[in-house]
Amino acid sequence: MLLKCIAIDDEPLALELIQTYIGRRPDVQLIHTFEDAISGAEYLSTAQIDLIFLDINMPDISGIDLAKSLKNKPMLIFTTAHKQFAFDGFELEALDYLLKPIDYDRFSRALDKAIEVKKYKMSTPPEQDDAFIYVHSAYQMIKIIFNEVEYIESMEDYIKIHLKTNKTVLTLMTLKKMLGLLPEEQFKRIHRSYIVSVAAVKSVQHKKVCLNEVMLPIGESYAEQVKQWTKSA
């Protein structure tokens, strides 16, 4: 499988470095480079690519504005010398965020993630025991295996995914959107702030769901639904 990409950066030396780095990877093809965002945007209006290496601080259009304008957005890896743009990259679900001067090993790891995500998108649905999704967290794509999830907690614009290993993953997403990505028979919403893995539920008592070491409240509007699926379980 070949990962097709382009690079947009107003610094010729930065483009040369990206070209050199990609030249070391037989599984990645650099289709084109652009020294201004407008030319890059025109190319992207008709071309089909997998990944963009996109500088943020450019004179005509910023990389952030260009990314926001794309209708069919490829994977994005932002390249910049300015740390203050990191949150913008996170909101746009960038695959990664590389600070200049870019180290080859760090660059190569970003490409590895892009290839893994492309394989995931192209693959047939996995068996239930291995089913998973990817979420953006801390400027990375994190693989979330459904069978490893205990419960999911809403935190305003974010959700916190609590894993059975006691680790957590924070990602910018609503609980409603997350529920739509999960297998319905495996996950149930019990409260406006919580989704639980049915397999992780030990008991239901006193309007609370008991997990291994956590007790979560059942919302009034979800009480009947919880009653129904616990009966049929």
Results as ranks from 00 to 15, higher is better:
residue 100 K to V: 00
residue 126 P to N: 15
residue 78 F to E: 01
residue 86 A to L: 11
residue 72 N to D: 15
residue 63 G to T: 05
residue 83 K to A: 14
residue 120 Y to M: 07
residue 58 M to A: 00
residue 114 A to W: 05
residue 40 G to Q: 08
residue 117 V to Q: 12
residue 34 F to H: 06
residue 45 S to T: 13
residue 69 S to W: 07
residue 111 L to F: 03
residue 104 Y to S: 03
residue 52 I to N: 02
residue 120 Y to K: 08
residue 52 I to T: 05
residue 39 S to N: 14
residue 70 L to I: 15
residue 63 G to F: 03
residue 95 L to E: 09
residue 83 K to S: 14
residue 98 L to G: 04
residue 121 K to M: 14
residue 41 A to S: 11
residue 73 K to Y: 14
residue 114 A to N: 07
residue 77 I to N: 08
residue 108 S to R: 07
residue 75 M to I: 06
residue 84 Q to L: 09
residue 100 K to A: 03
residue 112 D to P: 00
residue 56 I to L: 02
residue 95 L to Q: 05
residue 87 F to W: 10
residue 106 R to Q: 13
residue 55 D to F: 01
residue 73 K to M: 12
residue 117 V to K: 13
residue 58 M to P: 01
residue 44 L to P: 02
residue 54 L to G: 05
residue 53 F to Q: 02
residue 70 L to M: 14
residue 74 P to G: 09
residue 105 D to W: 07
residue 54 L to Q: 09
residue 41 A to D: 05
residue 94 A to C: 14
residue 68 K to Y: 06
residue 59 P to W: 01
residue 97 Y to E: 04
residue 109 R to G: 07
residue 77 I to M: 08
residue 33 T to C: 14
residue 46 T to P: 03
residue 124 T to D: 12
residue 72 N to M: 08
residue 46 T to L: 13
residue 126 P to Q: 13
residue 70 L to Q: 03
residue 60 D to T: 01
residue 92 L to W: 07
residue 109 R to P: 03
residue 102 I to S: 04
residue 33 T to W: 05
residue 115 I to E: 11
residue 120 Y to C: 09
residue 115 I to D: 05
residue 121 K to R: 13
residue 45 S to F: 04
residue 41 A to F: 08
residue 38 I to Q: 05
residue 125 P to Q: 09
residue 99 L to N: 09
residue 114 A to Q: 10
residue 100 K to G: 00
residue 101 P to C: 06
residue 107 F to W: 06
residue 48 Q to T: 13
residue 43 Y to Q: 10
residue 78 F to H: 04
residue 113 K to W: 10
residue 51 L to R: 02
residue 103 D to R: 12
residue 70 L to N: 03
residue 45 S to E: 10
residue 105 D to R: 13
residue 67 A to M: 10
residue 62 S to D: 03
residue 36 D to N: 15
residue 51 L to G: 03
residue 70 L to T: 03
residue 71 K to V: 13
residue 65 D to W: 01
residue 44 L to S: 11
residue 90 F to D: 06
residue 41 A to Y: 13
residue 102 I to H: 02
residue 118 K to W: 15
residue 119 K to F: 08
residue 48 Q to C: 12
residue 61 I to F: 07
residue 73 K to T: 12
residue 92 L to A: 07
residue 76 L to I: 15
residue 98 L to Y: 05
residue 83 K to N: 11
residue 90 F to V: 08
residue 117 V to C: 03
residue 38 I to H: 01
residue 119 K to N: 15
residue 93 E to V: 04
residue 37 A to N: 10
residue 60 D to K: 00
residue 46 T to H: 11
residue 57 N to E: 15
residue 94 A to T: 03
residue 108 S to M: 09
residue 97 Y to D: 02
residue 89 G to W: 00
residue 100 K to P: 02
residue 109 R to C: 08
residue 121 K to E: 15
residue 52 I to L: 06
residue 119 K to L: 10
residue 61 I to P: 02
residue 73 K to E: 14
residue 76 L to A: 00
residue 53 F to I: 02
residue 83 K to Y: 09
residue 113 K to S: 15
residue 109 R to N: 11
residue 101 P to G: 08
residue 38 I to G: 00
residue 56 I to A: 02
residue 115 I to R: 14
residue 60 D to F: 00
residue 39 S to P: 01
residue 64 I to K: 02
residue 41 A to M: 15
residue 124 T to N: 14
residue 75 M to T: 00
residue 45 S to D: 14
residue 79 T to K: 02
residue 121 K to Y: 12
residue 61 I to L: 07
